[in-house]
Amino acid sequence: MLARIHTDHAHIATLLALLDNKANRLALGQEVSLPLVRDVIDYLQRYADHSHHPMEDILYQYYLEKQGKGAETVHRLGQEHKVLAESTDQLMDTLNMILNDAVVPRERLIADLRDFAHQQRHHLEQEERYVLPVLEQELTEADWAILQQKVATKLIEDPLFSEGNDQEYEDLRAYLAELEAEAP
C-alpha cells in the first residue's frame, strides 16, 4: 500500500511540474494546450480526489484511532484532502469557463495554476517527509493486512499511468511519453 502511495505521489509530482511549465509558458505570453491542462486537472479530480486521498484518509484514520493523541500532523494532512479537492474543483471550473469562451484574465489563470501546484506539492512533501515514514515504522504487518481490506473499495486502477488500455487520457499520456523521450 505504501508503495502505491509513493508511486501515486511521484505521478502527481510529474503532473504538477507540467502545470508549472504551462503557467510559465503562459506568463511568457506563449500559447498552451488548455485541453491538456484540463486533462491534468480532471485526472487529479477523478483519481487523486476520489481514490488516492480516500485511501490515505482510511490509513490516517486507522493510525489516529490506534495512536490516540500526538498525531496532529496526520490529522491535519487528512483534513487538507478536503481543501485540495475544493481547489481542484475551482480550477476545473475556471478551465471549463475558458474553454467555453468565457473571458478570464491570463494573469488569473497563471496565478491559479501556480497556487494550485504549490498547494498540492506542499501537501505531498509533508506526507512524504513526516507522515508516511511514521506509518511505515509504527504500523505492523497485521495493521497493513487490516488496512488492505479497508481500502479495497477505494482502490481503482490508475486511468493515466496504468498499463490498461484506457483511452480516456490518450492525449495526456502521449504528451508525457513525448516529454520522457526528450529527457536526457
Score class of each variant (00 low, 15 high):
Met1Tyr: 05
Leu2Ser: 03
Ala3His: 10
Arg4Ala: 11
Arg4Lys: 10
Ile5Arg: 01
Asp8Glu: 15
His9Arg: 02
Ala10Asn: 13
Ala10Tyr: 08
His11Ser: 08
His11Phe: 11
Ala13Trp: 06
Thr14Arg: 13
Thr14Glu: 13
Leu15Asp: 02
Leu15Val: 03
Ala17Lys: 12
Leu19Gln: 05
Asn21Ser: 14
Lys22Thr: 12
Arg25Leu: 15
Leu26Val: 08
Ala27Met: 06
Leu28Tyr: 08
Leu28Trp: 07
Leu34Ser: 04
Leu36Gly: 02
Val37Phe: 02
Val37His: 00
Val40Pro: 00
Asp42Lys: 14
Asp42Gln: 15
Gln45Cys: 12
Tyr47Gln: 04
Asp49Thr: 03
His50Trp: 09
His50Glu: 13
His50Leu: 13
His50Asn: 13
His53Thr: 05
His53Phe: 08
Pro54Cys: 03
Glu56Phe: 00
Ile58Thr: 12
Leu59Phe: 00
Leu59Ile: 14
Tyr60Ala: 14
Gln61Ala: 10
Lys66Glu: 01
Gln67Thr: 09
Lys69Gln: 13
Gly70Gln: 04
Ala71Asn: 04
Ala71Glu: 04
Thr73Ile: 08
Thr73Gln: 07
Thr73Leu: 07
Val74Leu: 04
Val74His: 01
Arg76Asp: 09
Leu77Ile: 04
Gly78Trp: 00
Lys82Ser: 10
Val83Met: 11
Leu84His: 05
Leu84Lys: 03
Ala85Thr: 09
Ser87Pro: 01
Thr88Cys: 06
Leu91Cys: 02
Met92Phe: 11
Thr94Gln: 15
Thr94Asp: 08
Asn96Ala: 11
Met97Gln: 15
Met97Ala: 14
Met97Asp: 15
Ile98Ser: 02
Asp101Phe: 11
Val104Tyr: 03
Arg106Val: 09
Arg106Met: 07
Arg108Thr: 15
Arg108Ile: 15
Leu109Cys: 05
Ile110Leu: 03
Leu113Glu: 00
Leu113Ala: 02
Asp115Lys: 13
Phe116Cys: 05
Ala117Met: 09
His118Leu: 14
His118Arg: 15
His122Cys: 11
His123Leu: 07
Leu124Asn: 06
Leu124Pro: 04
Glu125Cys: 11
Glu128Ala: 10
Tyr130Lys: 12
Val131Met: 00
Val134Ile: 15
Val134Thr: 15
Leu135Lys: 00
Glu138Cys: 05
Thr140Tyr: 06
Glu141His: 08
Glu141Phe: 05
Asp143Tyr: 05
Trp144Cys: 00
Ala145Asp: 12
Leu147Trp: 01
Thr153Leu: 10
Thr153Asp: 14
Lys154Pro: 01
Lys154Cys: 11
Leu155Ser: 04
Ile156Asn: 06
Glu157Trp: 04
Pro159Met: 00
Pro159Tyr: 00
Pro159Asp: 02
Leu160Thr: 02
Glu163Trp: 10
Gly164Lys: 07
Gly164Ser: 15
Asn165Gly: 14
Asn165Pro: 06
Gln167Tyr: 07
Glu168Pro: 01
Glu170Cys: 11
Glu170Pro: 02
Arg173Val: 05
Arg173Asn: 07
Ala174Gln: 14
Ala174Lys: 14
Tyr175Ala: 11
Ala177Lys: 09
Ala177Met: 08
Ala177Ile: 06
Glu178Met: 12
Glu178Cys: 09
Glu180Val: 03
Glu180Ile: 03
Ala183Gln: 13
Pro184Arg: 13
Pro184Met: 12
